[in-house]
Simulated scan of single mutants.
Amino acid sequence: MSQIIDSLSEISDRYEAMFVDLWGCVHNGMTAYPEAVDALRAYRKRGGLVVLVTNSPRPRTEVMKQLEGFDVPDDCWDNIATSGDSARSAMLRGAVGDKVWFVGTQDELPFFEPMKMIDNPVQITRVPLEDAGGIVCTGAFDASQHPDVLRPQLLYAKQKGLKLLCANPDVIVDRGETREWCAGAIAELYTEMGGESLYFGKPFAPIYDLARSRLAEIAPDIPDSAILAIGDGVKTDIQGALGEDLDSLFISGGLAAAETGTVRQPDPAALERYLAEQNVSPTYSIGFLR
């Protein structure tokens, strides 16, 4: 059974570094959670290192700008690893060819910017679906619409044998009080239809490789046993941590607030039932990061 804690400080001295999810943990898609910011600041003041590990399809530089707009101060984190950077690296190495159909918004176009770490990158051209050799999906055209609206295009793509590169495995997020569909929902539908989807964010290994690399830029040789993964998604953050053999802290007041009976803290019985249904066992649980 997951141990319910009251604050991060109860366990933080056991870890040299933390991989911390953003949406649902540090901010709600609109503004920062003050208690979460304070908890991470306090951890860093004691010498801990914080790598923000996010399924955002945006490059690290764009996430930094976004955090500033959400009033998440830069003194509560040390580095950032994004699903977008992990997926961009694969795209620029030719994972879905050089002519791609782009599914996403204008705000996510920085995904196609060059990366210094890639030698001899593939020159990517965005083209209509009928001319594409692959698909790049950073999100829905309209996050309020169910991914099923894309079924005709996805069926055509599957018949052409196109691979879909998913830059954000999240299925849903809550922007304030509004629930939105993410790229993961489109990739999930494509896979169900018989298409091939390539994932690069949590819970899949590539983003953890990137997170360790970003951590090593600050402090090399920190073992996995000294890293705590924090997040509110059992299918992404917690399953990813389990797959990487990392201890984890589940934030029950995010996506699963209703299922876990979370007001300030989860209802123990509801939490246990929910985790059993999801077949996951985080090391610790807390209502909200604080």
Results as ranks from 00 to 15, higher is better:
residue 193 M to Y: 04
residue 22 L to Q: 03
residue 15 Y to I: 03
residue 174 D to S: 12
residue 3 Q to P: 00
residue 29 G to S: 06
residue 62 E to W: 03
residue 50 V to F: 01
residue 181 W to S: 00
residue 183 A to D: 05
residue 87 A to F: 05
residue 31 T to E: 15
residue 148 D to C: 12
residue 8 L to Q: 02
residue 63 V to F: 04
residue 168 N to C: 10
residue 211 A to Y: 05
residue 55 N to A: 02
residue 82 T to Y: 08
residue 144 S to I: 10
residue 100 V to Y: 11
residue 132 A to F: 11
residue 209 D to V: 13
residue 82 T to Q: 03
residue 214 R to I: 01
residue 58 R to G: 02
residue 205 A to E: 13
residue 87 A to R: 07
residue 100 V to A: 05
residue 231 G to K: 05
residue 228 L to Y: 05
residue 147 P to E: 12
residue 30 M to Q: 15
residue 121 P to T: 09
residue 273 R to K: 15
residue 15 Y to T: 01
residue 19 F to W: 06
residue 142 D to L: 01
residue 51 V to K: 00
residue 161 G to L: 03
residue 71 D to R: 15
residue 79 N to W: 08
residue 225 S to Q: 13
residue 75 D to A: 08
residue 249 L to W: 11
residue 45 K to Y: 02
residue 69 G to D: 04
residue 267 D to A: 08
residue 98 D to C: 09
residue 256 A to N: 07
residue 221 D to A: 13
residue 248 S to C: 05
residue 152 P to H: 09
residue 23 W to R: 03
residue 101 W to L: 04
residue 133 G to P: 02
residue 281 S to Q: 14
residue 1 M to R: 09
residue 252 S to F: 01
residue 151 R to M: 14
residue 65 K to R: 14
residue 143 A to G: 02
residue 42 A to N: 12
residue 274 Y to M: 15
